[in-house]
Simulated assay, not measured.
Amino acid sequence: MATHQLLLVVLGTAQRFGRRGAVLGELAAAAARRSRYANSREELTPAFDPRSTLLLALAATATLVRPEFWQRFASGSVSAHTLSQAG
């Protein structure tokens, strides 16, 4: 089964594109289970873990308000692991 890490995708999308629409597009695709999210399971923030889901919601909201807020969530370890366009 394929997996994805939506938190990293949200932060990486905000970093790369710097546009709310790009972040919203990723969130919409994940919610609708389209594109890369079809037949894929969330790996990093599973729905049964409320704290990790809260972090995802906070990061998504912050980057929708101001895409440059991705930097507030990214430390050296997180930014080194955000997905590239190819990822």
Rank of each mutant, 00 (worst) to 15 (best):
G18E: 05
G12Y: 00
T82R: 04
Q85F: 04
L6F: 06
A59W: 02
Q15S: 08
L6H: 03
A22K: 15
P67R: 03
R51A: 11
R72T: 07
W70M: 03
L44R: 14
V23Q: 04
D49N: 13
L83Y: 09
A32N: 10
G25V: 10
G12E: 02
S52D: 10
L24I: 09
S52V: 13
L64T: 07
A62C: 11
S84L: 10
A22V: 01
S35E: 13
L83K: 00
S40M: 05
A29Q: 13
F73W: 15
S79C: 08
Q85Y: 02
Q5W: 07
M1N: 04
A30P: 01
L54T: 12
R19L: 12
E43M: 08
V65K: 00
V10T: 02
R51Y: 08
W70K: 01
G25M: 12
S35I: 02
R66P: 01
L27P: 04
L44T: 10
L7P: 09
Q71S: 12
A30C: 07
L54S: 14
S79I: 15
L11H: 08
R19T: 09
Q5E: 11
L27G: 07
D49E: 13
T13Q: 07
G12N: 02
A57W: 02
Q5D: 11
T82M: 14
Q15L: 09
P50I: 06
H4E: 00
E26G: 01
L55D: 01
E43Y: 15
L24H: 09
R20M: 04
S35Q: 12
S35C: 06
A32H: 11
Y37G: 04
Q5N: 11
L54K: 14
G18Q: 05
A80C: 06
V78A: 10
L58A: 11
S52F: 09
L6R: 01
L55S: 00
R51Q: 11
T61Y: 04
L7E: 06
A80E: 14
